[in-house]
């Protein structure tokens, strides 16, 4: 059987297509696929390590921002007027009380 020469990117065999394929039965095919998978495993482990490292860095940065905001809030609180900080506090105000006007009627 004459080997097919790939004509474009879509004809190239990639690692993502492996999972859906049938299990090869020849030794050459199995060894080739094992080699590809070992490379892919290494690549994924490296990528996972990078993500975990990024997560740690982001968490550290986030904590630094939170600490800084807390510091700023404590600094500004004595400077602002005693007004409710959040609008939600206003929504719980009671409805305005009704004022009554008495009309005297003599019968």
């Amino acid at each position: 059987m004459k080997p097919v020469r790939p004509r474009g990117m879509r004809d190239l065999m990639t690692i993502q297509g492996i999972s859906g394929r049938s299990v090869p039965d020849t030794r050459e095919q199995i060894v080739a696929e094992q080699a590809r998978l070992e490379h892919e495993r290494t690549r994924l482990r490296r990528e996972l390590a990078m993500w975990e490292d990024n997560g740690r860095k982001t968490a550290t940065r986030l904590q630094a921002v939170e600490d800084r905001m807390t510091l700023l809030r404590r600094t500004i609180e004595p400077l602002i007027e005693p007004e409710p900080a959040r609008p939600a506090a206003r929504s719980t105000e009671p409805e305005p009380s009704t004022t009554w006007h008495e009309v005297v009627l003599e019968y």
């Binding site: 609008p87 305005p96 009380s97 009704t98 004022t99 009554w100 006007h101 009627l105």
Partner: peptide
């Protein structure tokens, strides 16, 4: 924060004499 306060509505009733 800007909130317009609703005014209380005056109502009338009759007091009989």
């Amino acid at each position: 924060t800007v909130v317009t306060k609703p005014k209380a509505q005056p109502r009338a009733f009759i007091s009989l004499r």
